[in-house]
Write a protein that binds this DNA or RNA. Structure first.
Length: 183
DNA sequence: ACGATGATGAAC
DNA sequence: TTCATCATCGTA
């Protein structure tokens, strides 16, 4: 059955959390309505050394949330119009987060926040039901099993470079930190 | 290929 | 206080 993902799940290295989020459900409560959408595309942003990560500038008012506890949302405005939804990962004081780039039926980070009515108001909230925005597990164990091979590697996951980060230089812009669930 | 649109961080 | 930049998207 559907189960709320605990903060412990997010308190791991971002490169482990990001692919593990694929196939899980982003859940949003809007008024009395609850919407569950499967996560299909994510990106990892990993610490001050990662020149594509906002925390490469160090601690600022904006990035402070990424230095905080795992399992909280980091939401910021991009290009003056679109809200980007991230979830903080890893140990406290280590800045890293997963950007949710796409969910089933809503491909694109700006589109999904618009459609799910996510904005600055959820910034810093924990990913728990009382926040109105949280993550739940996949359907059932048998369908989860289809995602894994004998080596425990996800066969249905494609790894590519991150989108829109050419400013990060030749090394960090090419890291395969984007994970996409194949159809 | 380009404009909308505004927060952010760094320079001055 | 100004300025360039920007984890995007819809329209052309």
């Amino acid at each position: 059955m559907k189960k709320v993902i605990s903060q412990k799940f997010f308190n791991r290295p971002v490169l482990e959390v990001a692919p593990d989020l694929l196939g899980k459900y982003l859940v949003r409560k809007i008024g009395q309505k609850i919407v569950r959408l499967k996560i299909t595309e994510v990106e990892a942003y990993d610490g001050e050394k990662d020149l594509a990560c906002h925390a490469c500038k160090g601690r600022t008012q904006r990035t402070e949330i990424m230095y905080g506890e795992a399992g909280h949302f980091y939401i910021y405005l991009c290009y003056g119009m679109y809200w980007m939804l991230n979830i903080v990962t890893g140990e406290k004081n280590y800045p890293s987060a997963v950007l949710i780039r796409g969910v089933e039926g809503s491909e694109g980070p700006g589109k999904l926040t618009r459609e799910l009515k996510i904005d600055k108001r959820q910034n810093g909230f924990p990913a728990l039901p009382f926040s109105g925005l949280w993550i739940e597990g996949g359907e059932d164990p048998s369908s989860r099993a289809k995602l894994t091979t004998g080596r425990g590697q996800k066969s249905a996951v494609r790894r590519t470079a991150r989108i829109g980060v050419s400013y990060a230089g030749p090394i960090w812009s090419k890291k395969k930190y984007r994970f996409v669930l194949k159809k």
